[in-house]
Design a binder for these strands. Structure first.
Lengths: 345, 345
DNA sequence: TGTTAGCACTCTCCTCACGCGAGTGCTAAC
DNA sequence: GTTAGCACTCGCGTGAGGAGAGTGCTAACA
């Protein structure tokens, strides 16, 4: 029975490295010359033949070099992950990309996608944090016009839900404030869903403002039905076209249109659960269109234990080590940012 | 001197129609057969030769058919626009796409981009309304945590600017409300920029809340420097890859990466001013990467006279008539929606 | 004078054959 | 177990030849 030994491992490593770099099937001569391991091309050839039999290498056709199989990448990545991923080479320089940035959450998310894609030269996806049921802290109405008001609901996750509602005829600012105070007292600590259920009972007790409460109820129950889906940013989709894997226009179009169906994409990225890091290689993604793509994701956390996800989509011959390192750094960056005492939405 | 006559016009029309349909240089025989105008191919050939001399046709090489020049499209579009654009063929069926949709503005914008791109099979861009300097109607602080508050500024355009700021130690809800009232009285009817200038003076008069006002000042002046850019949605970028014009991967990549630089894209789309309709053909766009693209835009309006823009980007051989019709319908749809009495952000 | 049929000519695109080069697998020698 | 040598395979780039589409021109016709 044939087995992996240390030397086979080294050779496989070299092949993967070279293929990731060039994207061209790599031959025995290349290995023996470029990565001098004191072996002739003939020996390498024998080993490669073994590695192919073990399922780590594929041969596009008889007379080309070998390319790593999904199984090989799997091995490669696992050993990467085991030995402590993170060469924090350029942490400071990456940090600089976020310096002085403390705007709306949406902006940060968008920007993160930009940064990740431009650092990796792959496609980046960033999903906003999404946690358990937020609990209400404050409810407040802000007059907008004679008949309309903005309702602002602040939760313990700092998430603000807002919308304009009708408040019926003539409500001055003070009246609205009074209602706001009452509601805040009644609803503090309650989830949005519970609030929805509680409202009718409250309305019974506080008479005279039926219209406002009714509108609020309508707003809340609508929000219940279609929960504001997480914000998502995608960056660098055009990067993929630079790789020969996508020089076929049809393939490229399939890929791009997948990137455009936000719902599906979010599902794919989020599908990774709450692991710190996830790497899915080629067929492991379970998506036919992505047969020769890999997806790497990492999670970051926002306050209140909410989990957000950042991910990179690239060809299977992705620079895993570099990508993992970048995701790690940006993940921490985002975690710091959302937990820090900076502004946030 | 050679002149355009009615027959030349009809032939040109036929050529453009055919080329838009097929994307293949069209020959004299095709015209005389498919679009029976009672003329032989030889006659058509003579006319085509004239049209080429007049600058309406180009010839990729000696022995191919002719393709319309930018000048030809220009003529074509102008005559379209003159004769009342809008065959409102499928207005009702398009309207259905928006039925029962009255969410956040962002959602509507995103959805509109989806709808337009899937109807036209080109790339769609939708820009949120953006008007003159908004004037403040209400300023209100909503407590978020012990030390932080959300500042909500409502303007006459219904636009809400919000951000979380530090309010220093212990500020209860009532105190914040009191400050809100004062500020609202002081700042009502004033633009954001003026508010920024007025604040120091106000702070002098109202003592004791320096911290809050200072933070507010910081927030406003930051907003001044980087005005919250309009929301923009892009849809159907992958559609472009379906056209032979972009079977060249490099071209496609250039195009896509242009679509990804939101700022530039917004500028391009917005560049059309406030015309009801704009059509820029090929070189007229002024963008080298778009030499064989056309951009069609239309504007819609939101309340307060704000102008939003919807646009379609496609190959120069675009189905102008169809696109104009669709943009017209969706434009009205959006106008209705934003002026209607539905929820809005 | 405008229209049409006929014809020679041009140019692209497709296909196919050919040769080069990279790379392998095998055998035999070290 | 390792290495040198060699025959063999196969993709890829190149170039020639042929088919097809379309033009421009000339001459005949109404």
């Amino acid at each position: 029975m044939m087995e992996m030994d240390e030397r086979k491992m080294r050779i496989l490593q070299a092949i993967i490295d070279d293929y990731i770099l060039t994207g061209v099937p790599v031959g025995s001569r290349t290995i023996s010359k470029k990565y001098d391991m004191g072996l002739s091309s003939a020996t390498i050839r024998n080993e490669m033949s073994d590695l192919e039999e073990l399922g780590f290498l594929d041969q596009p056709h008889v007379s080309a070099g070998r390319i790593p199989s999904a199984k090989a990448y799997r091995l490669y990545v696992d050993s990467l992950l085991k030995t402590g991923v993170i060469p924090d080479d350029s942490r400071s320089s990456i940090g600089r990309h976020f310096a002085g940035r403390a705007h709306q959450m949406e902006d940060v998310i968008d920007h993160a996608a930009q940064v990740i894609s431009s650092l990796t030269h792959y496609t980046a996806v960033v999903l906003s944090p999404k946690g358990m049921q937020p609990r209400i802290q404050t409810v407040q109405f802000v007059p907008v016009s004679a008949e309309m008001a903005l309702v602002v609901i602040v939760t313990d996750q700092g998430v603000v839900r807002d919308s304009v509602i009708h408040v019926g005829s003539q409500m001055d600012s003070d009246t609205l404030y009074a209602i706001s105070r009452t509601l805040t007292m009644e609803l503090r600590g309650v989830t949005l869903q519970e609030a929805c259920e509680l409202l009718p009972e409250i309305a019974g007790r506080i008479s005279g403002n039926d219209r406002v409460l009714q509108e609020l109820y309508g707003y809340l129950s609508e929000g219940q039905r279609s929960p504001r889906r997480a914000h998502m940013a995608v960056g660098g989709t055009s990067n993929m076209l630079a790789y020969p894997e996508y020089s076929d226009v049809d393939k490229a179009r399939n890929f791009l249109s997948l990137m455009e169906t936000r719902d599906k994409l979010a599902e794919i990225i989020q599908g990774s659960g709450e692991m710190a890091f996830t790497v899915r290689i080629g067929p492991e993604t379970g998506i036919p269109e992505m047969a020769d793509c890999s997806i790497v994701t990492a999670s970051y956390s926002s306050r209140g234990g909410q989990q957000g996800t950042i991910g990179v989509i690239g060809p299977t011959r992705m620079q895993y080590s570099r990508v993992l390192s970048i995701l790690n750094i940006i993940g921490h960056q985002l975690t710091d940012m959302f937990n820090g005492d900076e502004n946030k939405k």
